[in-house]
């Protein structure tokens, strides 16, 4: 399934003196199996856009479609079931662990599937699968209170609650915010695992090094519009523009840009540490050395 946004716009408190345009004229297609990173400043419209992907917000302009071989459907159109919407696209909010509320991890993760009206065996199977897929030991955590767990584990439980709905597309709003480097890495690996097994991923992130390593496509937002859309190589080759927009670039990219500006104009634009190492090796010795 693809998510297609056509000329989507969103205005907060439309028609009131406090109205504010959060999104305008967004044309965007999220294709099946992609790993898309959504980047941009706070206030650029990333989170608002994310909430359009599963129909949580209804656009004030344009249309959001879910599309497959059989055709497309306007998700806010008549007859489109909201339940099937949430089942197809799962949304993980920022700091999702703040929304944990049940007595046990098992019950918390079961909440969504229960609301789908599934039978008990199916619910149990899904809960077990979801908890395992987010990298937790089911037997060790299922009967614990989610509040006894560490911050990183609580976040996984919250994500498991969405994974248990078995969405084809998983949208995550800054899933690694506030985590330490170790937990961040584990969480990203877990998301990569979901992607490898066929889930489409849309991830909002401020961390460009993470984006450079995991995403296959980057969408850059500014002031409510999409200003760049391409592969990491395409996007980070415009590193200077990103910096001018006040966005971070991966450290490797920053180093390449600095070298290009500072006497090595032919240094390639790299965005991963391995690439920089290789390029520096060439520059400093070996074949084709420039100095």
């Amino acid at each position: 399934m693809r998510i297609v946004l056509e000329k989507v716009g969103y205005e907060y408190q439309q028609g009131s003196p406090f109205s504010a345009v959060a999104l305008k004229d967004i044309d965007l297609t999220i294709r099946e199996g992609e790993f898309v990173a959504l980047i941009g400043h706070t206030g650029s419209g990333k989170s608002t856009l994310a909430q359009h992907l599963n129909g949580l917000i209804r656009p004030t302009q344009g249309t959001v479609y879910y599309e497959d071989e059989e055709g497309r459907a306007d998700i806010h159109g008549k007859g489109y079931s909201k339940k099937s919407l949430r089942r197809q696209v799962g949304l993980v909010f920022q700091y999702p662990e703040y929304q944990l509320f049940e007595e046990t991890v098992q019950k918390d993760v079961a909440f969504g599937p229960k609301n789908l009206g599934l039978d008990k065996d199916e619910i149990d199977a899904r809960v077990k699968e979801a908890i395992t897929r987010v990298g937790l030991d089911y037997d060790a955590v299922a009967e614990k209170s989610p509040f006894e767990l560490s911050g990183g584990q609580m976040r996984r439980v919250a994500i498991a609650g969405v994974v248990a709905m078995r969405p084809g597309v998983l949208v995550l709003d800054e899933p690694t915010a506030g985590l330490d480097p170790g937990s961040r890495e584990e969480l990203l690996q877990m998301i990569k695992g979901l992607h490898d097994s066929g889930t489409t991923i849309v991830m909002i992130s401020h961390n460009m090094d993470d984006v450079a390593r995991y995403a296959g496509r980057i969408v850059v937002m500014q002031k409510g519009t999409v200003v760049m859309d391409g592969t990491p190589r395409e996007i980070f080759s415009r590193g200077e523009e990103l910096e001018r927009m006040g966005l971070d670039v991966p450290q490797s990219c920053r180093l390449s840009l600095m070298l290009r500006k500072d006497g090595f104009p032919d240094f390639p634009l790299c965005y991963r540490p391995e690439e920089v190492t290789e390029a520096l090796e060439k520059l400093l010795g070996g074949e084709g050395r420039a100095c």
């Binding site: 330490d180 480097p181 937990s183 991966p250 450290q251 490797s252």
Partner: peptide
């Protein structure tokens, strides 16, 4: 300690 060196 599950920490990393800076990439550079």
């Amino acid at each position: 300690c599950k920490l990393r060196q800076p990439p550079v």
